[in-house]
Design a protein around this nucleic acid. Sequence first.
DNA 1: ACGAATAACTGATACGAATAACCATTTGGC
DNA 2: GCCAAATGGTTATTCGTATCAGTTATTCGT
Lengths: 347, 347
Amino acid sequence: MARSRPRSGPTMHDVAAAAGVSQATVSLVLNSASGSRFSDETRQRVNDAVQQLGYRTNAHAKTLREGISGIIGFLGDAVATTPFAGKIIEGAQERAWEDGLLLLTMNTGGDKALESASLDSMLSYKVAGVVYAGMYHRRLDVPEALEAVPSVVLNSQDRKLRLPSVAPDEELGGYTATRHLIEAGHTQVAMINIETLESELPAAVGRFNGYTKAMTEAGIPVSSGLVRFGTGNEDDGFTYATELLTSGNPPTAIFCANDRTAWGAYQAAAELHLSIPGDVSIVGFDNQETLAPHLRPGLTTLELPFVEMGRRAVDLILQGAEPDGRVEFMTCPLIERNSVTHPKEKP
Amino acid sequence: MARSRPRSGPTMHDVAAAAGVSQATVSLVLNSASGSRFSDETRQRVNDAVQQLGYRTNAHAKTLREGISGIIGFLGDAVATTPFAGKIIEGAQERAWEDGLLLLTMNTGGDKALESASLDSMLSYKVAGVVYAGMYHRRLDVPEALEAVPSVVLNSQDRKLRLPSVAPDEELGGYTATRHLIEAGHTQVAMINIETLESELPAAVGRFNGYTKAMTEAGIPVSSGLVRFGTGNEDDGFTYATELLTSGNPPTAIFCANDRTAWGAYQAAAELHLSIPGDVSIVGFDNQETLAPHLRPGLTTLELPFVEMGRRAVDLILQGAEPDGRVEFMTCPLIERNSVTHPKEKP
DNA sequence: ACGAATAACTGATACGAATAACCATTTGGC
DNA sequence: GCCAAATGGTTATTCGTATCAGTTATTCGT
């Protein structure tokens, strides 16, 4: 026998009937911010009936009446499925829930038609706003329909500078990483970047600028012999780290612009029988949780503040998020592990 | 000047007015499954008005009328934030969207109060069903409220055997992994598991049973000297692989019950100057995308069918998902890379 | 040429909750 | 003792859509 499955639960009318009052009374008792006046006895009866019937307010009726729902749209090109950016959703969700809101999520995988259709669907649910999240930090084109509600671009920037954006402060991150190495006493600090600067990838450009700034500030000239441009994978990390470490004047420290590159550098050091951090200190970037803590020694790296960014984006939406084109840059904290120490004394 | 922000778009009445017809006509023209009859001219006028006004149906009004929404709830203990299980959401979302549905997601991080409250909220949105996803494969206790709608337990199993569940076929996976090694000619096949069998972790128990089955089937006795129980991290992989490989009668192949353990085994092999797969073949489990393809050589491993499981769970919900307690086990495909070859000829 | 059938559309209503406007008792002030 | 104010509710309406039950106007069969 198929279990009976009451599709629609009790309504306020049912509660009203059970409590012997009118539907309006139920509504007022349930919502009144202590404003309206009912006898304690009536309140009690209503609440009892609610409990007993297992009444749950119908969010759609409420939304229909009020015009705006308790839902925020989360539209990403691949966020939920990208290994280390799921944290973005976590942050957004947390913040939304603090105001009792839920997230209606959709990953488009970059498919513009799907993006448009699902955004449409979200809008038909009268979402309170939309978070438009990029899988990695870049400048992107945003669907126009987003302007119908408060929207925020997350982990990317609106190319047209219309919507407000929340992105990591890559430059400060690069600066912090480099500064950390300089403060440990290093002067021969190399950098292996994850893209050429022409790519205009904010991560590559920003992290490099931060590196340059820290070096310059410390009075250390940036030598092109100490800078390499890879593509962000461990092969390039291996290749360029090997190149750097076997050169005539090897660096005592390498800032790798992402963790995978740093992993390659670890492999290069192992191959050359150099110890980390004894012979060479390494700093990564991303704090990829399946990698950085598991390397030996643990990789000191910069964390992308995904949770915080997610929170902040929803925050802005809840504040009304006017389309002022402002970009908010968030600090990447340094996660210290064991891949950095002071350089060896020169013999 | 603040941009004007029309909070509620045009309604059917607006469209009706613009097209010079009644609201009922608009509704019928827009929805009619070719059932009702209107002149082509009227249809045209309605569609034009829809286009021009940018009309979008109000999903809440529709839901209120119809009693069920185009939303499916996705409740997970940590899925969206777990590195390699985000794929689950991807699959669920894909399948849902094929029927025009969206996912209302919530990660509870295991917090029962939060779980209950957010489930409540989902139910108040009259979701068409709920996917209750576990972060890793286990038996778990399911909130009772789930029985109010079609619900499916995903990547885990309902301990009470009420709700239908979708989970990976761990045993078949372990069998496939071991069989793969045996077919390559190995007879000395070790296994490093990720938990003791007492833990009742389906992954540990199932994979071990699969290993045993394949060995037995091939007429190879399972020697306890070839089996180790770690905790699934690379340290244990390193320790036990070292132990196995330096023993009197070392295995020519190791089945590691997850990729991180395999990573540890790689490190052990490197330390012992053994080549993979030349001296020892390795098979992992999980196909962790940030790890398995990046190891050198690429790790042959079993993939957890997250996308497929996500799809299947939504599928079941769309079919009505009666609470029959059935568990559907899904096949873990073998992903071949370069960590397996035939064993060296004995000199 | 007349009733029936058909085509093309409209009016009214219900879904469930929120709320403005109203009504009926008490209580209070003087 | 009478009007005003406070107390404790209720009625009616609205949100936007779907749909049942009509209502015209036209066409058809005989």
